[in-house]
Simulated assay, not measured.
Amino acid sequence: MSQFYWGVDLGGTKIECAVMNTEDQCVLRHRIDTEGEQGYEHVIGRIGLLVNTCANELGVFPARVGFGTPGTLDPATGVMKNCNSTFLNGRTLDRDLEAELGVPVVLANDANCFALAETRLGVVKDICPDAQVVFGIIMGTGVGSGIVVHNQALYGCHGIAGEWGHNVIEAGGVACYCGKAGCVETVISGKGLEQYFQQQAKVSAPVPLQQIVAMSAQGEPAAQKTLERLYSYFGKAVAQVINILDPDVIVVGGGVGNIDSLYEHAEQAILPHLFNPVLNTRIVKPKLGDSAGVFGAAMLVKPN
């Protein structure tokens, strides 16, 4: 068994590498700019540079590397899809990384890495260490999610397990980049909430979500309506997940997940849509912050 487990979080603006030991302690961590505007091959080279830099500092090269990616490796075609870093779409990322690094790699969507890290190392380990099913949500500019079952990330036959953000919850709603309209992502993402407030308040410029939350606390009607919309649609969308997966814990990350009142209203918003008279699933904030992605990537290559 290897002494270390290596993870890389490939983001749109930065690439981060973390090396962890068998006690799940991070022994080395570095990040560099992605420089995606210079193209796919350049980014592959940047990843090689980062891993080699860490290997030289640690004095050992990885046997395998786990990668968190802003999209999914399609199991049918072997190429990346649904990446918001669009230069990755249609690319054989796993094979190209293996050619660059000379070692096997394991890829997972960044939301799966978030869910895996919070399960094995974060809040789930603290509050419900025997959890069988965990649903991890990232509600930021967009909405992503990952599923962990028995401490392992779930991918699905299309590689899209956990794509909760692209279920339609508002008929005739705002158009989504995925081609549908009224997706969860268009309704309760940070961007979706800001756009809704702008429409309701009839202001010309976008207002940051944190400011909308503060305005709601001061009684501003459009801000209050925006948060009420969040609670209502969050409850409806999350109830659908609970009815299907029945998770022990739901971890809510991202900027929207920082809104404290969301947790205060969650149970009341979920119950009308739940196929159960009580809600036992725990809905909580994450523990690891922006460390979750890279730690979860390392967990991809560590045995359970």
Rank of each mutant, 00 (worst) to 15 (best):
P206H: 06
Q198R: 14
Q200F: 00
L193Y: 09
V184N: 07
E194K: 11
A181F: 03
K180E: 14
G192R: 02
V203E: 02
Q200S: 09
E194D: 02
Q198Y: 04
V187N: 05
S189Y: 04
Y177W: 10
G192H: 02
G179P: 10
Y177R: 14
G182K: 07
G179M: 09
V187T: 12
A205V: 14
Q198K: 14
Q200P: 00
Q199H: 12
E194G: 11
Y196L: 15
Q200T: 09
G190W: 03
G179F: 12
Y177F: 08
Q199V: 02
T186I: 01
V187E: 13
F197Y: 15
C183Y: 00
C178I: 08
Q198I: 06
F197W: 13
F197N: 10
Q195G: 14
G192W: 01
V187P: 06
G179R: 11
Y196C: 03
I188Q: 01
E185H: 08
Y196R: 15
Q195K: 12
K191C: 04
P206A: 06
Y196E: 11
Y196G: 04
V184S: 09
V187M: 10
A205G: 00
I188Y: 00
A201P: 09
S204A: 15
G192D: 02
Y177Q: 13
V184R: 07
E194R: 12
V203G: 03
S204Y: 09
Q195A: 11
G179E: 11
V203P: 01
C178T: 06
S189E: 05
G192E: 03
K202Y: 07
A181D: 08
K180L: 14
K191W: 07
A205Y: 10
V203Y: 00
K202T: 11
K180N: 15
Q195N: 14
E194L: 01
V187S: 04
Q199N: 06
G179H: 10
C178G: 06
G179D: 10
G182E: 04
V203F: 01
E185R: 06
G192M: 04
G192Q: 05
A201L: 08
C183N: 03
G190F: 06
T186Q: 14
Q198T: 13
L193E: 03
G192Y: 01
V184C: 08
S189V: 07
V187Q: 11
C178K: 10
I188V: 13
K191I: 13
C183W: 00
E185Y: 06
